[in-house]
Simulated scan of single mutants.
Amino acid sequence: MWDRNVLYRTPQTTPAETYGEANVEAVYLEGPSYRGKPTKIYAYYAVSKVDGDERVPGIVLVHGGGGTAFAEWVRIWSARGYAAIAVDLEGQLPLPKTEQGRPRHDWAGPQRKGEFADYGLPLKEQWMYHAVSAVMLANSFLRSIERVDPSRIGLHGISWGGIVTGIVSGTDDRFAFAVPV
């Protein structure tokens, strides 16, 4: 269902606003098209400092329902010696929720609607397709960073992110470990 030839390539990136978060970088990763339009995936990332030619392990962090990319998670994992990336799965920006939800950016794909409420749509229009693709692209991005050991990249998700982690761990065989919570 997912085109590994595309998702295993390093995605194009565009710098993104960091919304005041220190010690992390923010980027948009190029995502799969949605209804014929290009998408971008908002992400925070950081790479732990290393000595010499040492390479660090990596972790892809997947938020739960109603969440977004969390810079704090990236800082925690980076402080522990990892390269870490936290991706947003719903085209949202890491800003506070309003009555309408979190603000979305201009290149968003589908939003999650309930529990698989979009199952009747074509696969490439479903939220889960885009969520899994976003996580696989985040893995590809981490692997492209010279100081990251691609054989030691793991995956961690909570709540809906745990469900996505379970699907991705059966879809992307490049992960060294997966921790769905």
Rank of each mutant, 00 (worst) to 15 (best):
156 H>K: 00
56 V>M: 06
130 H>R: 05
20 G>P: 14
8 Y>N: 11
155 L>T: 00
141 F>Q: 10
78 S>M: 08
73 W>V: 01
109 G>Y: 01
178 A>M: 05
165 T>Y: 00
157 G>T: 04
16 A>D: 11
138 A>V: 02
92 Q>N: 14
42 Y>H: 09
100 Q>G: 08
109 G>K: 02
125 E>N: 03
35 R>V: 01
33 S>F: 05
161 G>A: 03
83 A>Q: 07
136 M>G: 03
79 A>M: 10
176 A>V: 03
44 Y>Q: 07
4 R>A: 15
74 V>L: 11
3 D>H: 15
78 S>W: 02
115 E>T: 08
79 A>I: 02
164 V>I: 15
129 Y>T: 03
168 V>F: 06
11 P>W: 07
165 T>C: 01
149 D>E: 05
52 G>P: 11
103 P>G: 09
41 I>D: 09
179 V>P: 00
177 F>W: 09
107 W>T: 04
143 R>H: 06
169 S>W: 05
10 T>M: 10
18 T>D: 11
92 Q>L: 14
167 I>A: 01
146 E>H: 05
88 D>E: 14
94 P>D: 11
105 H>D: 04
22 A>S: 13
142 L>F: 03
47 V>T: 13
5 N>Y: 14
7 L>R: 15
136 M>D: 03
40 K>E: 14
31 G>F: 11
129 Y>F: 14
45 Y>P: 02
170 G>H: 08
110 P>K: 04
147 R>D: 06
60 V>N: 12
46 A>H: 06
63 H>P: 10
43 A>I: 07
66 G>A: 07
169 S>P: 01
151 S>E: 07
77 W>Q: 14
147 R>I: 02
112 R>Q: 06
148 V>C: 02
164 V>C: 05
180 P>E: 00
111 Q>K: 10
